[in-house]
Structure formats: C-alpha cells, structure tokens
C-alpha cells in the first residue's frame, strides 16, 4: 500500500564553496546541523539538508521558519561569495510511504531505488515521469520525499494518483 501527501514546508537553496571553512562553519552554526558534503546524501535533525552539487544544498524546514533562517544565513554569511534563496513559493514537497514505493517510482525513473542502494539518508536529483525532481529517502518505513517545481506538482500528483488508483494527496496539510 502506498500513501502519499503534499507537505507544507519551507525550502531554501544555499550555495557556497564546500572547501571554504568560513562558509561551511557559518552555515553549520546557523542551521544547527552539518551540511552533507558527500554526494547524493542528506542530513536530518533540525532540518533536512540535501546535497545538490559540490557547492549547492537544499534546506527543507518548517514553513514558518524559512524566512527567519534566510535572514540569519544572510547575516552570518554577509560579504562571502554565497547565494541564499527562499524557494518556498516555487517548490512543493510530496512524501510517499510504503514498501512498494520503489517499485512505483521505478516505473518512471531511471535510478536504482532498491533499498540496498538507495536507503535512508540517500538522495538524488533525477527525472520522474518526465519532471525534474529531488528525491530523498527520509525514513525507515520507507518514507520518500519528492521535491518538485510547484507548476509540475499537480501533474505529478495526478500521475501518482493514477498509478496508485487513489485520491490521496489532494489536500495540502
């Protein structure tokens, strides 16, 4: 059984050099948790931080914390060669739960999502049903998070509803 829902979260895109300790330390201090420096991984404690590239991260947090967090990051990293953008209005997070989710996603995604290769703490940017997505495994059940551009979210929800023969995900929580 697959269950999925749209989750109201704050999204921040953070860019800076992973080799610059001033940036990494500054960001870590404000975020209260370390940036994932290994490719295709995410860290979860206060927020969820996804690795997007060697100098790019996605911070996902409670929706009412994003604006504050952006201000704090801007203050802490002022004068450095960084980019901090609040993408909360432009992105949508979907969460999917169930052991058959990998099989569902495999219908339209080229990643190997077998739990032995894509487990908790792994993430990847890829394509799912022709849309660009950021996909992460965030829980043991397993729970997956899909982050997608807002304008594609309705299409992707319809695709998920069609493939699971359900009407889930239609109400944002």
């Amino acid at each position: 059984m697959t269950d999925f829902s749209r989750v109201d979260l704050g999204h921040i895109n953070l860019r800076g050099s992973a080799e610059d300790s001033r940036f990494v330390d500054g960001a870590t201090k404000v975020l209260g948790q370390s940036l994932p420096l290994a490719a295709n991984t995410l860290t979860q404690s206060l927020h969820r931080i996804y690795w997007l590239g060697p100098d790019e991260w996605q911070v996902v947090t409670e929706s009412d914390r994003a604006a504050d967090l952006v201000r704090q990051l801007e203050a802490a990293l002022a004068g450095q060669h960084v980019a901090i953008n609040d993408l909360s209005g432009g992105q949508v997070a979907l969460q999917l739960t169930g052991t058959d989710v990998p099989e569902l996603l495999a219908r339209a995604c080229t990643l190997d999502l077998h739990p032995s290769l894509f487990g908790v703490g792994d993430c990847a940017q890829s394509g799912l049903a022709k849309t660009n997505v950021l996909l992460g495994c965030i829980g043991e059940t397993p729970v997956y998070e899909i982050i997608v551009r807002r304008s594609y979210s309705e299409y992707l929800l319809r695709w998920l509803r069609q493939k699971t023969h359900s009407r889930a995900g239609s109400v944002s929580s």
Binding site: A39, N40, G53, P54, T110, A124, Q125, S126
Partner: peptide
Amino acid sequence: PYCGERAETEF
C-alpha cells in the same frame, strides 16, 4: 564526476 553513474536521459 559529481553525482556518479546516471542514465543518458538525465544529460
């Protein structure tokens, strides 16, 4: 070089 092996359609 950053993400590892992926399918051609991603590129």
